[in-house]
Nucleic acid binder design. Structure first.
Length: 939
RNA sequence: GCGAGGGUAGCUCAGUCGGCUAGAGCACUCGGCUGAUAACCGAGAGGUCCCGGGUUCGAAUCCCGGCCCUCGCACCA
């Protein structure tokens, strides 16, 4: 031994290669490669085969564009659920999917310029669409993988896969053969310039100047309420060209209508609007002769003078008294509400406008005119017929085609529908079996289905699954022949849906040909429309759960944003209850909210508050994004901003450092051979084990309840308070200065190992990268799995649950807090610096048996360690009160005094003690000298 | 307009059979340590529990009425 012994070298300082700096953006991709190399997904699947299943069925995102934060939120939540399920003992396969058909992809393909929009062959276009969809699917797949999401990425499901399409056709067939599919007229947005129907998504609103006309219709049958001479219903409209299609006038049942005598006859209009209307038509306000509710006027009829047609007055809740006359011109062929209310009264839509926007013969004198050009002509005709009260111009918001920017019209066209009425009750009954999380999801979807109109499932496009209907060329009646559907499904299963376009209709005939049930015709044509993409994704429960051997129908869980109550949850439910015997496709539905910024505003490019997940990954790492997801209560809206991400990154560092410190103190610990049994543990270590059980219990419950933010907060608090600020701080002296193999040190390490091991497990579903990294540094038994993701969740070890111990230590920690307050006073005056420079005197008057005095007395030898001071003196039984400069009150009647510690600073443990008791080590306290001596002896 | 959900420190969240002075972590400020060191420990400051009524001895919590935000629907004749 040299003259200047290096006592620091005799300490057991933490040692670990686990880096403090996470450097996630570079480390994570390496981890991903390692997972790829070990085929993580299949490895987990193999290891969990045969267990009880928990199937989360992935809702397919639309394969169009890079992922945004909403995607990331959704996929990370799913990943947490699935990883927890596996760790909780289930076989939980995860097959991700994509929605690959539909308009946005078709438009993107058209926009690519590789095909001529006006003369493109459907097959050519569909090929291009396939490429577009595949491209984005691959892009998104890589981005999802980068998030650390574990799934069967090599075998995802796509709605364009033949097997999926065949199943979808079978679902359609089931609906059709049960009589739930029909063909009908429905007004859709129509661009007369592009000559195509437009989806809602292709509409944009812009200001437009329109005509504004007031029109009167003479009453024919007043139903005993209205006079039939010189009496008129008065309406207002901004679209004169829809007058030829007028088939009704709609009133609100509860609005008050007045019969006004004017110089132009008796007029019926809403009382609330009378003043405005008379002003607008330039008449003195008429004399109010009688009033009626709308309801009382139902069934009154009036004459359309341009077409000599008698039509009814009907009722509708959509009527308001904000504009117009309170009596709404109703043309079921040209308006959505008009169509619906018309349906209720059995008034079929009249559409005298062709696909070019030109009036047909049905429009009589206006036939051949472009609808917009007809406006002034019609106004003139109304004037001639004595119907026009006034005309002017108005500027208002109006729907335009997003591609050609021209105003669009509503136009009734032939569409295919699912008759929801036929299975609405079944659907509502089915959801009673479903668990909704949060619970309000049930009423939300219930209300939605209750008010559901028929589902328009046809689209006049090429990129999708065809409606597999053959129509008789002779009588134009559709065939619902089961054998045809079966044939289509079988061919599609082999060749994909291109076959519908490439093969002749006769290829889909059953053996022996097809005969029209109505006219006996033998020639059929193929339906040209395709199915709504919601029908695609709505069939995924059949197309995926029933076709993959590792999955099963129904799913245990669907997990999507709350907008999917109206979307995927609904469409899946509707197809399922029809095609699968009234059963819902899911046992539980979990929803998350939407992304907003710190102020609660939705994310939008124009607001500049959009957070890009790819950038967050680049800057902070996927684990930060994952931790952010876990930190939020996702059931309501989820706030995110640069600032919030930064804060999560801070919390991450705390957790990481805690884990690092644990690992550092376990570098020389073998949990198999060196663990200390419970009975040999120090009391504070048993208390730490007790606290760990509490945390494990709370975390398990939080996971099971999908309360991931409680997992986050529990672990965060645990790391900061119980571990870092209390237990680990107290432990330092013992870990560093005790003999390497002493029971004191091994006892602490036994706890630290349990804590580190549990933390890795509890964190694995959330901080998948970091948990895996830490797992690599954790001492492990020989049979430990190759990945942290195959560990089980820690279970509460009842042997360590000790409520009494918990209470006692809660009290001791209260005393500790009081001591720290007094230490702080002494420190503020520079009386002490390190707390080890202090001695603490505790004054307490005995109190009841088992009271504070007893508690302190029993733990007297532990107290210096707990307070991290050099000495503690206890004065129980009413001895002298504190007389020093630094004192304060503790719990009960405890007084705390801080004085400078006596003795000298031990060079090794820095406590103030009597040093030099053992001559060989004149600067060490007796304990340290002993440790050093026996260490030398061992060597 | 209708339906659903939400509003507690700067941030993320606890807190309901109504009950101590509304809590935690982080961030912030100040201090300590220098044997977890781009760490660690301590202390402090920080709140009109969205607003206004009501019930009650007592309301973040229950009731009524507003405001704001989010999702969905409807409307824009």
């Amino acid at each position: 031994m040299s003259d200047k012994p290096d006592y620091k070298a005799t300490l057991n300082m933490p040692q670990t290669e686990f880096p403090m700096k996470a450097n996630l953006p570079t480390r994570e991709p390496e981890q991903l490669k390692a997972w790829e190399a070990m085929d993580l997904y299949q490895t987990v699947q193999k290891a969990t085969r045969g267990r009880k299943q928990f199937i989360l069925h992935d809702g397919p995102p639309y394969a169009n564009g890079d992922i945004h934060l909403g995607h990331a939120l959704n996929k990370i939540l799913k990943d947490i659920v699935v990883k927890y399920a596996v760790m909780a003992g289930y076989d939980s396969p995860y097959v991700p999917g994509w929605d690959t058909h539909g308009l946005p992809i078709e438009l993107a393909a058209l926009k690519s310029g590789k095909v001529d929009k006006n003369k493109v062959d459907p097959i050519e276009l569909r090929k291009l669409c396939t490429e577009t969809a595949q491209h984005w699917m691959a892009t998104q797949r890589d981005q999802f993988k980068r998030l650390g999401v574990r799934g069967d990425w090599e075998h995802p499901y796509l709605t364009l896969q033949p097997e999926f399409e065949a199943k979808e056709i079978e679902v359609f067939a089931a609906m059709a053969t049960q009589g739930h599919i029909y063909r009908g007229l429905k007004p859709v947005y129509w661009c007369a310039v592009d000559e195509t129907a437009l989806a809602e998504a292709e509409i944009e609103y812009a200001d437009k100047t329109s005509f504004s006309i007031y029109v009167r219709f003479p009453v024919v049958d007043g139903k005993g309420k209205l006079p039939e001479q010189d009496t008129y219903m008065v309406i207002w409209t901004t679209t004169p060209w829809t007058m030829p299609a007028n088939l009704a006038i709609c009133l609100h049942p509860d609005v008050e209508y007045g019969l006004y005598a004017t110089e132009k006859g008796n007029m019926v209009l809403a009382v609330a609007l009378a003043k405005k209307v008379f002003e607008a038509v330039g008449l003195p306000e008429g004399e109010l002769k009688a009033t009626f509710t709308g309801k009382e006027l139902e069934g009154v009829t009036y004459r359309h003078l341009l077409f000599d047609r008698v039509s009814p007055v009907i009722l509708g809740d959509h009527v308001t008294v904000e504009d117009g006359t309170g009596a709404v011109h109703t043309a079921p062929g040209h308006g959505h509400e008009d169509f619906i209310v018309g349906q209720q009264y059995g008034i079929p839509p009249l559409n005298p406008v062709n696909e070019k926007g030109v009036f047909t013969e049905e429009a009589g004198p206006f036939a051949g005119m472009f609808y917009e050009k007809a406006n002034p002509v019609i106004i003139e005709a109304l004037e001639q017929a004595g119907m026009l009260l006034a005309h002017g111009k108005v500027r208002h918001s109006y729907a335009h085609c997003w591609r050609c920017k021209n105003p669009v019209i509503y136009r009734a066209t032939v569409q295919w529908f699912a008759k929801v009425e036929g299975f609405m009750d079944t659907a509502m009954k089915a959801i009673d079996e479903v668990q909704f999380i949060p619970e309000w999801g049930h009423s939300r979807i219930h209300n939605m289905i209750e008010g559901l109109a028929d589902w328009c499932i046809s689209r006049q496009r090429s990129w999708g699954v065809p409606i597999p209907i053959l129509t008789c060329e002779t009588c134009n009646e559709p065939s619902f022949d089961e054998a045809v559907f079966e044939r289509v499904a079988n061919i599609v299963r082999k060749e994909g849906t291109d076959a519908w376009w490439t093969r002749p209709a006769s290829d889909f005939f059953p053996e022996g040909g097809l005969v029209c049930k109505h006219c006996g015709g033998r020639h059929f044509k193929k339906e040209k429309d395709i199915l709504d993409v919601w029908f695609d994704s709505g069939s995924s429960h059949a197309g995926v759960l029933e076709t993959r051997p590792e999955l099963n129908w129904p799913a245990d869980l669907y997990l999507e944003g709350s907008d999917q109550h109206r979307g995927w949850f609904k469409s899946s439910l509707l197809t399922s209850v029809v095609a699968r015997d009234g059963k819902p496709p899911y046992k539980a539905v979990l929803t998350h909210g939407f992304l907003v910024d710190e102020k609660g505003r939705k994310m939008s490019k124009s607001e500049g508050n959009v957070v890009d997940p790819l950038k967050v990954i680049q800057q902070y790492g996927a684990d930060i994004l994952r931790l952010w997801v876990a930190s939020t209560d996702y059931r309501s809206d989820v706030a995110v901003s640069e600032n919030i991400i930064k804060q999560v990154a801070e919390a991450y560092r705390k957790i990481r450092n805690t884990v690092r410190y644990l690992l550092g103190n376990l570098s020389d610990f073998n949990p198999v051979t060196e663990a200390v049994s419970k009975d040999d543990m120090l009391e504070i270590d048993r208390w730490a084990m007790h606290k760990l059980q509490e945390v494990v219990e709370r975390v398990n419950k939080a996971y099971a309840d999908y309360d991931f933010h409680l997992v986050y907060h529990t672990i965060n608090n645990y790391c900061s308070v119980d571990l870092s600020a209390i237990y680990l701080d107290v432990l330092k002296d013992r870990l560093y200065t005790s003999g390497k193999n002493s029971v004191e040190r091994r006892s602490a390490q036994t706890v630290l190992y349990a804590v580190a091991d549990s933390l890795v497990r509890m964190l694995a579903p959330i901080l998948s990268f970091t948990a895996e990294e830490a797992y690599g540094y954790l001492p492990k038994p020989a049979d430990a799995p190759a990945t942290s993701q195959l560990l089980s969740m820690p279970k509460v070890d009842r042997a360590f649950v000790n409520e009494k111990l918990g209470e006692q230590w809660a009290k001791l920690l209260e005393v500790r807090t009081a001591v720290q307050a007094v230490l702080e006073k002494a420190r503020a005056d520079k009386h002490i610096g390190s707390s080890q420079e202090a001695q603490v005197n505790l004054y307490v008057t005995g109190g009841p048996e088992g009271g504070l005095a007893d508690l302190l007395q029993a733990h007297l030898s532990d107290l210096p360690g707990i307070f991290i001071v050099s000495d503690v003196h206890l004065f129980a039984g009413g001895q002298a009160a504190p007389s020093g400069t630094y004192y304060g009150q503790g719990p009960d009647d405890l007084s705390v005094e801080v004085v400078r510690a006596t003795g000298e600073k031990c060079e090794r443990c820095w406590n103030y003690r009597e040093v030099g008791v053992i001559e060989a080590h004149p600067t060490l306290c007796e304990r340290c000298a002993g440790v050093v001596l026996s260490a030398n002896f061992e060597e």
